[in-house]
Amino acid sequence: MDTYKLILNGKTLKGETTTEAVDAATAEKVFKHYANEHGVHGHWTYDPETKTFTSTE
């Protein structure tokens, strides 16, 4: 398992979190669920070199 990072740049919520996942697709599902639960619906990007997802509203 690898550690993946999420950076949230929402209108009402900003911050970072991490998750352990078997691959990027699994981490993306976890992070999108997390963002949706916190009302963040933004544009998603992923940097495979740093294993970092960013959601920007």
Rank of each mutant, 00 (worst) to 15 (best):
W44L: 09
T18I: 07
P48I: 07
Y46P: 00
T50L: 06
A25W: 09
K11Y: 10
T3R: 09
L13A: 09
G39L: 05
L8V: 08
H33I: 14
E57M: 05
G42D: 03
G42W: 14
H43R: 12
K11F: 13
T3H: 07
A24D: 04
T26N: 07
D2R: 10
F31A: 01
D47T: 06
E16F: 14
W44K: 00
A21F: 03
G39N: 09
L13S: 09
V30S: 06
L13M: 14
K5N: 06
T26H: 13
T52I: 07
T12A: 10
L6S: 02
V30E: 09
S55H: 08
N36A: 15
T56C: 08
E37D: 09
N36W: 14
H43K: 13
E28C: 15
W44A: 01
A27D: 01
F31R: 01
H33S: 13
T54V: 07
E16H: 09
E20D: 09
E49Q: 12
A24G: 03
K11E: 10
T3G: 03
E28W: 15
D23F: 02
L6K: 02
N9R: 10
T18C: 11
T18D: 04
F53V: 01
P48V: 08
V40I: 11
H38M: 15
G39A: 06
A35R: 01
A24Q: 09
H38A: 12
T3M: 09
Y46K: 00
A35M: 09
H38P: 01
G15I: 15
D2T: 14
K5G: 03
K32T: 06
N9T: 07
G15D: 11
G10V: 04
K5W: 09
N36M: 14
G39E: 05
K29W: 07
F53R: 00
N36C: 13
E37V: 13
G10F: 14
T18Y: 14
K14W: 11
D23C: 04
Y34E: 02
T19K: 02
E57V: 06
T45G: 07
T18K: 07
T17A: 11
T3Y: 07
V22Q: 12
T17K: 08
N36F: 14
L6A: 03
G15S: 14
Y4M: 03
V40L: 08
A21Q: 05
A35Y: 03
L13R: 07
V30C: 07
